[in-house]
Simulated scan of single mutants.
Amino acid sequence: MAGRRLWLRKPRGTGEHIAATVVALAALVVAVRMAAGAVGALKDAWPVLSVLALLAGAVAAWRSRQATATRRRERERLATLRITLDELDVMDDRAFEYALRDLLIRDGWPARRVGGGRDQAADVIGDHPQRGRIVVQAKHTRVGGKVGSSVMYAVKGTAGPAHKADHAVVVTNGAFTRDAMAWGDRHGVHWVDRKKLQRWAETGAALHELLGVSARFRPSRFKRAA
């Protein structure tokens, strides 16, 4: 019995038609009364709903103003950002990467931190409408520590194929070996050592000025290699 389907039979005869009509009219009356009750309830609640709507609008406007003010304060902070070498030295790797991101933003490069376990030799990436894409590999080290050529090889190998970079740079608060600097100069991987980092972060020199990146550049060897 449980598997049997129920079918509605059409009314037969005048009596059944009249009964069906009466039921339909009763259902219609009930529906109309329910609708009228809902309209009446809505009418009674309209002042409360209006107040709630106004409150919701006021909260949304307040949040929008707060967000705008926060973004403005952040832009103002970054526009005058200065970070001393002492401050950079006490940072951990993650904080150092965020500091480099903020410095790029200060210089007009909309940038984001991408460092992580699978960063493919890129910790920060910035995109500039005139200067193209820059990939930064951050090497935070103890004072006096040196970055070797292997870092340059890794950055060169991924800057174009993995990140579509126009410019690649390795930044450290320490130093570079002579071989690393020479290899980077030959193969187009920029390097920023402690001395250049001080000029960039502490005195406010723009990174593109330190690297000699003009506002109008030719597509780099990194993108052609991609």
Rank of each mutant, 00 (worst) to 15 (best):
R77F: 00
L100A: 15
A121D: 07
G117Y: 09
V170D: 07
L88E: 01
R77I: 03
A79T: 03
G116H: 09
W109P: 00
V147F: 04
Q66D: 06
V124Q: 12
A69E: 14
D119I: 05
A69N: 10
A180H: 08
N173M: 09
E87H: 10
T80C: 03
R63V: 03
E97A: 13
V124Y: 09
I134A: 02
V151F: 01
G174C: 10
P110L: 11
R118T: 13
G115T: 03
L78G: 00
G117L: 11
V114I: 14
W191C: 15
G145M: 09
G160I: 04
G188L: 12
F96T: 11
M152Y: 11
R73C: 05
V155P: 01
V192G: 04
K156G: 12
D107A: 05
M152L: 15
V189D: 01
T158Y: 08
D107M: 05
F96H: 08
P110A: 14
W62K: 13
G145S: 15
Q66R: 14
V151C: 07
A95V: 12
P161R: 13
T70C: 05
A121M: 05
K196L: 14
T84P: 06
I105L: 03
H167I: 10
F176H: 07
V169Y: 13
S150K: 13
R75F: 00
I83W: 00
S149W: 08
E76M: 05
A175T: 15
R77T: 09
V169I: 10
H128A: 05
F96C: 09
R72Y: 01
V170L: 14
L81D: 02
D166V: 04
R178L: 12
D193W: 04
A111I: 01
L78K: 02
R75C: 04
D86S: 14
A168C: 03
D123P: 03
G148Q: 07
T84F: 05
G188I: 12
D86G: 11
